[in-house]
């Protein structure tokens, strides 16, 4: 009779920091059911959890719009700043200057980036500020009820019947040309690809610009839209298969160097990009932009990582800052001694 049964519940799954996925969740979403942005939030949670990012080491930044509300719906233990329309890049820049030891994740939309925010967006890219910049791209303004944005394709139709006749701004081509060092496009419905890209983004040092097509179920998911789930399912064309092996997972995965680019990230992890398109070369900017421009002509929506450069110094590197965050340097390091003031005064005599 002397049998004891141990009925311990299975220990909750944890990551390398001992945190549960719960520790990466945020508030309940108030976006529409089925909104692509919610899927992106889920993938961010997965990527941060799997990569073992300490939530308190992350700053989430956003502008204005449906996309920019989403940081409230993931990673509630991270510091968040929902700023003003189109100006998140400057806020992110300031925050990172104050504390360059933090990770920064910016969430923007196609209106917030490609229209009102274009001025700051291009300068962010040019500086190669070390942060992840995600555009949740649905081709329309959601919060103001469905007007076209500047990423809408020519010929795309609104529910009201209005047809867009201005060419779209390709944020990926732009990012590559202006100096971002990790540029890709994905689709909120492509879980596997988006997760791998986000994990690689976390490992990258420099500006990561990810344009994620994220259908707006309320204003831009109908027949005639080029940003709908259906359209994406029919036209998404991966330029390469994205695989990611984090530095802390000691797994040797074979790959064929003839068909796969192996990119060693600065933290020692590996981004494996298996060529699906003829001529694909993620280390060459000209090729990347050419292929993007060709895809516009054929009507396919190219996804995947288009360009990676792990060598280029970031804006923070160029400033040659002290190791400690500037914001909390003690007075002894920020207020020069009295002798310095005396010296300055004597120069003005």
């Amino acid at each position: 009779m002397a049998t004891t049964t141990v009925t311990n519940a299975p220990a909750p799954k944890t990551n390398r920091l001992g945190l549960q996925v719960l520790d990466y969740r945020g508030g309940k979403t108030t976006l529409c059911a089925g909104c692509g942005h919610n899927s992106i939030s889920e993938r961010i949670i997965d990527a941060m959890y799997e990569m073992g990012v300490q939530p308190e080491r992350l700053m989430k930044l956003s502008g204005i719009g449906c996309s920019s509300k989403s940081p409230a719906y993931f990673m509630g233990r991270s510091f968040s700043f929902n700023s003003v329309h189109g100006r998140m890049p400057s806020v992110a820049t300031g925050a990172l200057l104050s504390n360059h030891t933090m990770m920064a994740l910016g969430v923007s939309g196609d209106g917030d980036t490609a229209s009102i925010g274009m001025g700051q967006f291009v300068h962010l890219l040019r500086r190669n500020l070390p942060m992840i910049y995600i555009i949740e791209d649905n081709g329309v303004y959601g919060l103001t009820k469905g007007q076209f944005s500047a990423t809408a394709d020519v010929g795309s139709k609104l529910k009201t019947g209005v047809i867009n006749d201005l060419p779209p701004i390709d944020t990926c081509s732009l990012a590559i040309q202006l100096g971002a060092t990790f540029v890709g496009r994905s689709f909120s419905g492509d879980k596997k690809q988006l997760l791998a890209m986000l994990k690689a983004a976390i490992a990258h040092k420099g500006t990561v610009m990810l344009d994620v097509i994220s259908p707006c179920v309320t204003f831009n998911d109908h027949e005639g839209s080029t940003k709908s789930y259906k359209y994406m399912q029919e036209h998404e064309e991966a330029i390469a298969e994205v695989g990611f092996v984090p530095s802390f997972e000691d797994i040797a995965v074979d790959y064929d160097p003839g068909t796969t680019y192996n990119v060693t990230m600065h933290d020692g992890s590996h981004l494996r990009l298996r060529k699906l398109h003829e001529g694909y070369n993620p280390t060459d900017r000209v090729t990347a932009v050419t292929q993007l421009m060709q895809s516009h002509a054929t009507g396919e929506v190219l996804t995947g990582v288009f360009y990676v450069n792990t060598e280029k110094p970031t804006f923070i590197d160029q400033l040659n800052l002290v190791d400690a965050p500037l914001g909390t340097l003690p007075q002894e390091r920020t207020r020069p001694a009295k002798a310095v003031l005396d010296e300055i005064m004597s120069k003005h005599r």
């Binding site: 700053m59 930044l61 700043f81 700023s83 003003v84 100006r87 890049p89 400057s90 806020v91 992110a92 820049t93 300031g94 925050a95 990172l96 200057l97 104050s98 504390n99 933090m102 001025g119 700051q120 300068h123 400033l319 040659n320 800052l321 002290v322 190791d323 965050p325 500037l326 914001g327 909390t328 340097l329 390091r333 920020t334």
Partner: peptide, 28 residues
């Protein structure tokens, strides 16, 4: 190494955006 960062911004909107981002994160 510098105990400061001085950035010439793209315009005054960005200049003050950076000021607030930095102030939020603790900098003077």
């Amino acid at each position: 190494k510098a105990t400061f960062a001085i950035v010439q911004a793209e315009d005054e909107l960005a200049a003050v955006g950076m000021v607030l981002g930095a102030g939020w994160a603790g900098a003077r």
